[in-house]
Structure formats: structure tokens, C-alpha cells
């Protein structure tokens, strides 16, 4: 597996340290499907099936795919909220895969998560200030006045007023709640923030504000994002590199500009073609894929995408393609890839 790419990033970000901040190798998460009276294992959901990638320091890796392709499972596994079936997660060179809850605690400060649903990710019975200040007390970083000041500072950073600290979550709008979630994630001074579809639940106008806030915060603090979304436009705006997932596997990973200019995997091409164009006169592109994602309980043999791929060959039905280099900082898992750069 050639998942560990050399440092990507665009815009000439100078990197002195070559160790990636987050390095995920061969991550697998299977869920048992149990049935019958004896609750025997009758099947396996291949939620994540051998995923490898890395996120550099100060970099944003966008992870895209249809719903049900395992994006969120990757996020939860990286955060150690879900135990991986196998594989390794390295945070700044330290393997955190097998750490116990207690051993994990200090590493929690280095990585935080922002969830999709801003309504369910805040405890309705706590004030916004208490929610943002809670991580500080859990890690014993600040108490009393110092904590209040720090929380006020965090509120200012995410564009909320300090007098909103005593309000309850239901008194905020969706965008404001997501700002509270971001403030909570920031409170511990993390180096990696996993964003699990942070703007999918928001209005389009608010999405842009939140995305820009995330970009500003990254410029200021230099942390990395693992940014998960199903909306390519959003990912295009924030990411330095983009990985495309299909049915539990990464099918293509490349620098953002490269991926958008030269998509190599038929699935990526189809995804790009499906992005709506804000021009009523624009010619409608013919849909490149139809049907639904196959069930992850019985993923198709060979290349998981062959059931929907217009270029499917006999080989695709039996042999699973692995990620292979396809140009500079570009890897694709497709038998059409001959290493020269043209596909399809």
C-alpha cells in the first residue's frame, strides 16, 4: 500500500519536519452483523477496509465519498472513539492504536473532533461557556477566573460574544452552535482537528462562514485538519490534498489542484461531474454513474466500484486494484491506471 504520500500541501508551505502529524496504516473496521436467537455472527459490515493516509503538519486532508462509504468511521476510529479491527494510527510518530483510556488521555489534547450535527453535539443542559470550559477543567488547565478568561478568548476567536457564555445551546443558531463546537475543540490547543462533515447540516450561506473560520483558525494556529465531507465544493475550498473513498477504501488521493484538474479514477470523475454548476445555461452533464453504493456487508469482489463503472473490465471483477502512483503526488487504485497519467 502506498498510502503514505510525501508532503503535499499547496501554496508553498515550507515544511521542515517530514514526519506526518497523523499516519494511518491499513485501518480496518468491521462490524459484526448478528442474528438469530443465539446472536451468532451472520455477516460482517466492512465499514473501513484497509485505509491508509497521512496528514502533514498544518495540512488539510479532505476525505470525500458518498454516505455510507466509511468516512465517519474513519474519523471516529482516528479519534479512538471506535476501536479499529486492525491497522495502526500514529499521532506525531506515536502509535496510539493500542493505548488504554488512561494512556490515551494526554494524547486527547492533541486531537479534537467537530461533529456534523451541531444540535446533538452540545449538552442541552450546560451553558455554552461551561461546554467550552469543560475540557480545561478535565485536563486541569485552568479554573475559576483564568478559565472564564480563556473561554471568553475562545469565544472571541470563533466569532461569538463573551456575554453569550451564559446562554444555553438552544438559544443559538446552527452556525453559532458549530462555532461553540469549534471553540470546544480549540480549547485544548490541539494539533489535529477531525471535522466530520462540520457544515453539512448548515445553510449554504452559513457553510461559507464556518469554512472560512476554520481556514482562518488554521492560519493562526497552524494545526492540521482531517476534513470529511460529501460536498466536493466544500472540500475544494479548504483542503490541500483530497482522498476519495468508496465502500471503505480510498480509491484516489492527490493534491487538490491535481485531483480536480486530472481525476484518474472513474468514481472521482463521476463525483466531479455531479457537482452542480451555478449556471442555468450550462449544459447538463450526463450522469456518469447510477444506482446505489453496494452493501458493505457483501462488497463486490475485485474492485468494489466495478458494478457501477462504465469502464469495467474482466480483471476488475476478480482482482482488487491497490493504490499506485499516477503522476506526481497522485495515487489511484484503478486497473486503467498505467502510471502514465491518462485514464478512461
Amino acid at each position: 500500500m502506498g498510502g503514505v504520500l510525501a508532503r503535499g500541501g499547496n501554496g508553498g508551505r515550507a515544511m521542515t519536519d517530514q514526519t506526518p502529524l497523523l499516519e494511518v496504516t491499513d485501518l480496518v473496521k468491521h462490524y459484526a452483523v448478528r442474528g438469530g436467537i443465539l446472536r451468532r455472527r451472520v455477516g460482517t459490515v466492512h465499514a473501513v477496509d484497509g485505509v491508509s493516509f497521512s496528514v502533514g503538519k498544518g495540512e488539510t486532508l479532505g476525505l470525500v465519498g458518498e454516505s455510507g462509504c466509511g468516512k465517519s468511521t474513519v474519523a471516529r476510529t482516528v479519534m479512538r472513539l471506535v476501536e479499529p479491527s486492525s491497522g495502526a494510527i500514529k499521532l506525531d510518530g506515536t502509535d496510539i492504536t493500542g493505548l488504554s483510556k488512561a494512556e490515551m488521555r494526554p494524547h486527547r489534547r492533541s486531537m479534537q473532533i467537530v461533529f456534523q450535527d451541531p444540535f446533538a453535539s452540545l449538552n442541552p443542559r450546560m451553558t455554552a461557556g461551561d461546554i467550552v470550559g469543560e475540557p480545561l477543567s478535565v485536563h486541569g488547565l485552568a479554573t475559576g477566573r483564568a478559565k472564564q478568561e480563556r473561554v471568553a478568548e475562545l469565544f472571541a476567536q470563533v466569532g461569538l460574544r463573551a456575554d453569550q457564555m451564559k446562554n444555553y445551546p438552544h438559544q443559538f443558531s446552527g452556525g453559532q452552535r458549530q462555532r461553540i463546537c469549534i471553540a470546544r475543540a480549540l480549547s485544548l490547543g490541539p494539533r489535529l482537528i477531525v471535522c466530520d462533515e462540520p457544515v453539512s447540516a448548515l445553510d449554504v450561506s452559513i457553510q461559507a462562514q464556518v469554512i472560512n473560520l476554520l481556514i482562518d483558525l488554521q492560519r493562526k494556529h497552524g494545526f492540521s485538519y482531517l476534513f470529511i465531507a460529501h460536498d466536493l465544493a466544500v472540500v475544494a475550498h479548504i483542503s490541500h490534498r483530497v482522498a476519495v473513498m468508496y465502500l471503505g477504501r480510498i480509491v484516489e488521493i492527490a493534491d487538490k489542484t491535481e485531483l480536480f484538474a486530472n481525476p484518474r479514477h472513474p468514481y472521482t470523475q463521476a463525483l466531479l461531474a455531479s457537482v452542480p454548476i451555478a449556471d442555468p445555461k450550462a449544459k447538463k452533464l450526463e450522469p456518469m454513474i447510477d444506482g446505489d453504493v453496494p452493501s458493505p456487508i457483501n462488497p463486490p469482489p475485485g474492485c468494489a466500484f466495478h458494478t457501477r463503472c462504465r469502464y469495467a473490465m474482466d480483471r476488475c471483477k476478480v482482482e482488487r486494484p491497490v493504490l499506485m502512483p499516477a503522476g506526481a503526488k497522485h495515487e489511484v487504485a484503478c486497473w486503467l491506471n498505467d502510471g502514465t497519467g491518462r485514464a478512461g
Partner: peptide
């Protein structure tokens, strides 16, 4: 619910 997961991810017991 995500707020419980968030509490886990900040390292709460």
C-alpha cells in the same frame, strides 16, 4: 449522542 462522544474525545472519565 455526539455530545457524549465529544466528552469522550476530550478525555473525560
Amino acid at each position: 449522542l455526539p455530545f457524549v462522544e465529544a466528552a469522550k474525545s476530550i478525555g473525560m472519565s
